[in-house]
């Protein structure tokens, strides 16, 4: 109980600090800490799947994206900032935010106890899928459509980021070229960590059917394993015009949709798995989807292709 209170207080403190921080880098560092503390909170709430996703995506990947944004903002740090709002406006904003926060707090306390839940229905229907992890059952079967569409959103995000490419570099490698880091911790990590990371990711993916874990967490780790050598200048990313790269980004979502349409053709409903085929089909989709999401996440971190600017 004391530990939970401390954790909650720490989360609130880090969140407040992130909002109040004057320097962008401080705000991002606190945001990453916030994500990690939040994943601890999910562990305390007995939601290990959510905790892993929060740590991998919420703290890890979002943190890297934000740090990249801070670095790009660096040269423009002395750009004229917006005028601070006047006293009256500040007061109104404060009152508005306080009102929303109070209403949300009250609404949470008003929620029925015990909370209405679909968990018994999930547990009753889970055996027909052959899966042991209820979360995977929800994500890949009962609400498989949402997961499929989210995977399509990831592809859309890659297209959207590439559409922001400055003129002159279309088709070349994504992101700015990284200087080679000869020695030091980054270089060492970039050489040592990937083999271990890939094994860990494969494990997380594989146990996801029956234990906490799954594709988004595994994909985030895989993406990090690709980003490390890139950041250390040891590997150059492929050109975005490369057909295999583009195929890799979409292979998972395409397989997912094709399986869904096949379900409509054979079983009469989109994403209906034939009896006995649910688990093997779900595992196959997850393996390919993990690879696709990993490639997409890494590409999102690298950013759009840039013409080689003199540096």
């Amino acid at each position: 109980m004391i530990a939970d209170l401390l954790l909650a207080a720490a989360i609130a403190a880090v969140a407040t600090g992130s909002v109040l921080a004057r320097r962008a880098f401080t705000a991002v560092a606190l945001f990453i800490a916030y994500g990690l503390l939040l994943s601890l909170a999910w562990v305390r709430l007995a939601a290990p799947d959510v905790a892993m996703t929060e740590a991998a995506i919420g703290a890890g990947l979002s943190g890297v994206l934000l740090l990249g944004a801070v670095r790009r903002l660096g040269p423009h740090a002395d750009a004229p900032a917006n005028l601070p709002p006047g006293l009256l406006l500040t007061a109104l904003i404060g009152i508005g935010c306080a009102g929303v926060a109070a209403a949300l707090g009250a609404a949470i306390l008003w929620l029925p106890e015990p909370a209405p839940t679909l968990a018994p229905q999930v547990a009753a229907a889970l055996p027909t899928t052959g899966l042991g992890n209820a979360v995977t059952g929800v994500l890949m079967s009962f609400r498989g459509l949402d997961t499929l569409l989210e995977a399509a959103v990831v592809v859309l995000a890659v297209i959207a980021v590439w559409s922001l490419a400055p003129d002159g570099g279309w088709g070349s490698a994504p992101g700015a070229r990284q200087p080679v880091v000869g020695r030091g911790p980054l270089s060492l990590l970039a050489r040592m960590l990937p083999p271990i990371g890939i094994v860990v990711a494969a494990h997380i993916l594989w146990v996801g059917a029956d234990a906490p874990g799954g594709k988004f967490q595994a994909a985030a780790i895989l993406a990090a394993m690709w980003l490390l050598p890139w950041l250390a200048g040891l590997a150059t990313p492929p050109r975005i015009a490369a057909p295999w790269l583009r195929m890799a980004v979409v292979a998972g979502p395409v397989l997912f949709i094709v399986v869904g349409l096949a379900g409509a053709a054979v079983e009469g409903a989109f994403l209906a798995y034939p009896p006995g085929w649910a688990k093997p089909l779900i595992k196959s989709i997850e393996v390919v989807l993990t690879a696709s999401i990993a490639v997409a996440l890494a590409l999102l971190v690298m950013g759009p292709p840039e013409p080689d600017a003199p540096r």
Partner: peptide, 19 residues
């Protein structure tokens, strides 16, 4: 199946358009 395909076919086409 008609509204389902009206949603899913453009999604499939959007994804396939990338490669």
């Amino acid at each position: 199946a008609l509204p389902m395909l009206a949603v899913m076919l453009p999604v499939l086409a959007m994804v396939v358009a990338l490669p």
